[in-house]
């Protein structure tokens, strides 16, 4: 920890409350529990594995209600899946 970290502002507890709520409500509203998300994730992995080799550690799948500009959108499934190698088709 450097001296400068000392002056860094902690995120306010109201912001923490807001972001925690937004995440909880996404799964409440879509009826999509963490267990179901896990199943979706595993199924996606199984499908992709047929064609490409993916980096499981870097994999991130979640539902978001905001786009990258922070604007509200409908619930969107966002998957970030790093590819290790494209499998070559035998000719």
């Amino acid at each position: 920890m450097s001296v400068f970290d000392f002056f860094k502002k902690k995120p306010s507890s109201s912001n923490t409350a807001k972001s925690r709520l937004q995440l909880a409500l996404v799964s409440d509203r879509t009826g999509c529990s963490p267990e179901i998300m896990e199943k979706i994730k595993n199924d996606i992995i199984d499908v992709l594995r047929k064609y490409i080799e993916i980096d499981l550690d870097g994999l991130d799948i979640n539902i978001q209600t905001k786009n990258e500009n922070g604007e509200l959108t409908g619930p969107t499934l966002l998957a970030n899946i790093p590819i290790k190698e494209l499998k070559r088709h035998e000719r």
Partner: peptide, 13 residues
């Protein structure tokens, strides 16, 4: 103080 959500926060959610 940033220790309670504002009415705007609640309305946004």
């Amino acid at each position: 103080r940033g220790d309670m959500m504002s009415s705007d926060d609640v309305v946004e959610i």
